[in-house]
Design a binder for these strands. Structure first.
Lengths: 123, 123
DNA sequence: TTCAATACGGATAAATTTATCCGTATTGGT
DNA sequence: ACCAATACGGATAAATTTATCCGTATTGAA
């Protein structure tokens, strides 16, 4: 178990939203869940680059932050369905715009990302 | 100097935008620059929680990604001014909405963030 | 002559996040 | 009997990001 050592910033809206959506797969998860892809196994199939363990962790965080919630069916084999809370729904317009902006500018973005490999330092 | 080992995802818009704005202070920097706070020293004063070194690194990344650009005045003491590129300007509506959403939901967000301290595991 | 203001970046440590590996448990199909 | 499908999470390694510390260089002001 990991214990945070540095304080979390919560000065302004940008700090706060960063805390809940800046995870490698969080916006993807929100997106797919909003599209009705609700079961963990399905989400994983849609995000094959992500390790299942990581998806679980990020789903848990989204759940803790109350952007999503889940229904656990009492059956075997297990069945779980995630859905967006009202708060989660309210952020979807922005998530969709993020994806749209990325798509609209994909040429540019792919170019600058490739350029990074040539740069002397990255950090 | 650091060399990346894992591949960068660039499958979809959400991957791409993550690459350019998911840094601890990037959306803040974009916001303040859009507000006309253009000099590094001023940006630092507006984001006192951030280490200056980190702001420099993230400004450099924003510059490499062509969301911002800078004018270097040839004088002493040095003077530099950052400004948004067209691409940077095009993302501001979304950045502003992110901040707005965070502000609008600040009570909720502060509550869930505080709750994290009580949770058994974080990762 | 010493210090403040200005911007930048090397070197390295620390913190955090993500990845990998593997084990739990149950039902039904082959 | 054995395996696939299903969801979950412990333990730990690896990768990445962020933080800390300090040094460079120049002008003008006290």
């Amino acid at each position: 178990m990991y214990e945070r050592k540095l304080p979390i910033q919560e000065e302004c809206g940008l700090d706060l939203i960063r805390e809940v959506i800046f995870g490698k797969w969080k916006i993807h998860l929100l997106y797919y869940i909003s599209q009705g892809i609700s079961r963990p196994g399905q989400l994983q199939k849609n995000i094959p680059e992500a390790a299942r363990r990581v998806l679980n962790i990020q789903l848990k965080q989204l759940e803790d932050d109350e952007l999503v919630a889940k229904t656990v069916y009492d059956q075997q084999p297990p069945k779980v369905e995630y859905y967006l809370t009202d708060l989660g729904k309210s952020i979807m317009p922005i998530v969709n715009q993020l994806g749209q902006w990325g798509d609209d500018n994909s040429e540019h973005l792919q170019r600058v990302i490739k350029k990074r490999l040539l740069l002397p330092e990255i950090n």
